[in-house]
Design a protein around this nucleic acid. Structure first.
Lengths: 341, 341
DNA sequence: GTTAGCACTCTCCTCCGTTGAGTGCTAACA
DNA sequence: TGTTAGCACTCAACGGAGGAGAGTGCTAAC
């Protein structure tokens, strides 16, 4: 027994209905729908078949049917077609994305909010991933006697800063010179060789040993923290609008996932090659999200750097709309960040 | 009719009980408590008086009594005594606050988590406020042909960065020179005079007009954004553990407050001169928090810079514990950030 | 193959009645 | 005069009974 065209049609109708109502769907409801010219009895037979095939489930005998994970998977694979946003809506999004500030962080933060506002789901945006991180510039700036700020600019323009202590009485010009020397010797070098270069530098300049060692340490820390990308969440309370989260325990479970940046990064994956990745319910690694769907897309910042943006919603989410908005926002962010770069 | 000692005692007993159980407190419960040597009937009389005085309220006739806002205010003003954390706990907190990274952001983010873990309430930490912002250092770093990264280091060591476009073919050395010149002329100047200085610079160096104008713009933007301090929230899901938030609507309301950084900054205030500020229920400006209490304290980073940390919980929160933890964490953060500076 | 009819199932809602915690009042007591 | 025991009263919460309604599966007719 396979899935003929009529079963497809009925399954789609059931999913569509369930997506909007979140209530088990009965045969009469489907029968009444435009485009389906069959009596409830016929629909019932088909539904019974669909249940046997694993696409539908019944909460209890006298309730309607609810789509299973398998049904959503089919729906997404076969029936989903990305739509297009209305001009009006695109304009509205563009308007909300407008920002005077050119800081990458501002753009991303804003994007998370727009994304959750537009979809009414929870959105997550992960800051750009640095493809192959290289140091571009090192600068040590005196802050007060004994302390300085070490600034490291990396290839994609990401700035890392840290406070370090410096020997008393070191002049600003001297620091300037050291910065220049460090930049000259480190710039463009692959990360792996930084440690070796530093060893050389320290050998050459023994009298600045302490300062250099501390600088080295900060650089190492920041290289180690390369996967410590920022994560911005929008609309974390949005999911509470859906009946599946009227249970406080479930809500809490969900929210606790949003609190851990590590978990979020795992959930979001790396965007992959696909334009849009959809993980439905149990396909998510994180058990707390086993009744959620996670949609992710990626955006680009310049040539090397990519980031991930995504939407988390109930499995019965409006996939079509979500995919459309996500794709649009991915392009919008890429464009905003490329204008800058 | 005033508040004699016995009324005080009974009121305190009621609040103590209500804080732990969240259930209306009856006369028998109080009577049974150690330290209260009166029969339920006597307690009832006193409770009746306390209700008339506005310290207690009755959800319905045959329920026990619940403390009113006025009772909490009295409790906090008169009965609250800050305790001290056990050595074990202090050690545990210190351990959790340990971080290899010296970035200010890391310390603060961590603090938010520790604070919410230790209290089981929601915590908010606002990044340091810059007392009188001055530019300390300006640096323009080439990123790719046509674009550069502008980095501004301010007095308290806060780094602002932005991507700007530069004329093609400008050499790194040339940028270095410009950076140096800008730093020399701008460093230490009060904000108000920056615009004038820039006008002078642009007059002197007409051929770099476009680059300078863009730099000026970024500086202005960042000065304007000086109050756009970062806010970190910890344990946003914690409040859902309390029965007063088993209602999803209330939970959503609360969470939506946490989503707006602007609102949070307003809620947190500026820490004030007081060591610890307590705003109970309706004392909060934000109506969504009218059944929450917000406790804030401040921490210092160096000499000029102060930030705010706080706890948001139900009005029946354990004030004593909250105050103790908050005070301790304020000192801990100050110390960590001063070690750095 | 499709559909009407019908008995059956199961949840949900509402309507009591009961239970128990707690109060307020009164009268007795120290 | 303050304190306490006793008692009637109130009201939310719990639980069972019964009806309504939505939906199903099966059978027989078209």
């Amino acid at each position: 027994m396979g899935l003929d065209e009529r079963k497809f049609l009925i399954l789609q109708a059931i999913i569509d209905d369930y997506i909007t109502t979140a209530m088990p769907v009965g045969s009469r409801t489907i029968s009444r729908k435009a485009g389906v010219g069959f009596s409830p009895a016929t629909i019932r037979n088909e539904m019974s078949d669909l249940e046997e095939l694993g696409y539908l489930a019944q909460p209890h005998t006298s309730a309607g049917r609810v789509p299973s994970y398998k049904a959503y998977r089919l729906y997404v694979d076969k029936l989903l077609k990305a739509g297009q946003l209305s001009g009006e809506e695109r304009q509205k999004i563009a308007q909300h994305m407008q920002t005077r500030s050119r800081q990458v962080e501002t753009v991303i933060r804003r994007a998370a909010r727009v994304l959750s506002d537009a979809t009414k789901y929870t959105s997550v945006v992960v800051a750009p991933h640095i493809g192959s991180l290289r140091i571009r510039h090192v600068q040590i700036v005196p802050v007060s006697s004994g302390t300085a700020m070490l600034i490291i600019v990396t290839s994609a323009g990401i700035v890392k800063d840290a406070v370090i202590s410096i020997p008393e009485g070191l002049s600003a010009d001297h620091l300037y010179g050291i910065s220049r020397m460090l930049t000259e010797r480190l710039a463009g070098q692959p990360i792996e060789s930084v440690r070796q270069i530093f060893a050389d530098i320290i050998r050459d300049m023994g009298n600045e040993r302490k300062l250099l060692a501390e600088t080295m340490q900060v650089i190492e820390e920041n290289i180690a923290a390369v996967d410590d990308r920022d994560v911005y969440v929008g609309g974390s309370a949005n999911l509470l609008n859906y009946p599946e989260y009227s249970d406080v325990d479930k809500a809490r479970n969900f929210l606790s996932v949003l609190e851990s940046r590590d978990t979020l990064r795992r959930v979001m994956g790396d965007g992959g090659d696909m334009e849009i990745t959809i993980r439905i319910g149990p396909e998510n690694e994180v058990p707390e999200l086993s009744d959620c769907s996670v949609l992710t897309a990626s955006y680009r910042m310049g040539d090397q750097s990519t980031g991930t943006l995504g939407i988390i919603g109930p499995t019965r989410m409006n996939y079509s709309r979500a995919v459309t908005v996500l794709a649009f926002m991915g392009r919008a962010i890429s464009q905003l960040l490329s204008d800058n770069k």
